[in-house]
């Protein structure tokens, strides 16, 4: 599967998924624009795709992202994964839609959105949406917002890490679990420093 970095807003805000591919949002684009809105249009039967958005928000760079996986052709599949880390006074506003048209039988589409809060005074807007018009489909979404788990911090501290180190490790792992799925090493290498998780 090819990996495509989305570093500018596509024309008419639509990307046609005509062959199987992995799409990764450039964190610079997400932070640089007021709103980033992209519809992924599945009108070629049998294509499969992954949509990945990873970002770390701080006070100066709120992120407003809208993605839509719109399935029209049959037997397409999509997996949307969003990971956001919120630092002091930051905002993450994410709307992620899965739309399955009546014609799109045998669709699989999933969305998984997680916000990890590490700072104070943070704001989250989260709107995972399903619009399902067909029944021969598999679709689900999950969305979580929460601080770093206390028992996890304690477990890592019991192995000799300071609280800050433990939190840093959890943040790193939070992104790493998705970065690990990015096929193209250059894209992965490009993202790491932007997420503040270069090599320790």
């Amino acid at each position: 599967m090819r990996t495509i970095l989305i570093d500018k807003i596509p024309s008419k805000n639509i990307i046609e998924v005509s062959s199987s591919a992995q799409y990764v949002f450039d964190p610079k684009l997400l932070k640089g624009q007021d709103v980033v809105e992209v519809e992924f249009l599945f009108n070629t039967p049998g294509v499969t795709s992954e949509i990945i958005a990873l970002y770390s928000c701080d006070e100066l760079s709120p992120v407003k992202l809208r993605t839509s996986a719109r399935h029209v052709a049959r037997s397409t599949s999509c997996n949307t994964v969003v990971r956001a880390v919120l630092r002091d006074n930051s905002l993450s506003d994410y709307l992620g839609k899965i739309k399955i048209e009546k014609t799109a039988i045998d669709t699989s589409s999933f969305l998984d959105d997680a916000v990890l809060v590490v700072g104070k005074g943070t704001h989250t807007r989260s709107d995972p949406i399903l619009e399902i018009e067909a029944n021969e489909v598999k679709a689900s979404h999950g969305s979580t917002t929460g601080r770093v788990d206390e028992s996890m911090l304690y477990y890592l501290e019991s192995r000799g890490l300071t609280r800050n180190e433990a939190e840093g490790l959890i943040v790193r792992g939070f992104f790493e679990s998705v970065l690990g799925n990015i096929k193209e090493a250059s894209v992965k290498n490009y993202l790491e420093p932007l997420l503040g998780i270069g090599e320790k």
Partner: peptide, 10 residues
Amino acid sequence: FQYPSEVTGV
């Protein structure tokens, strides 16, 4: 630990 935490991505 009796119930060790799961730490994703690490």
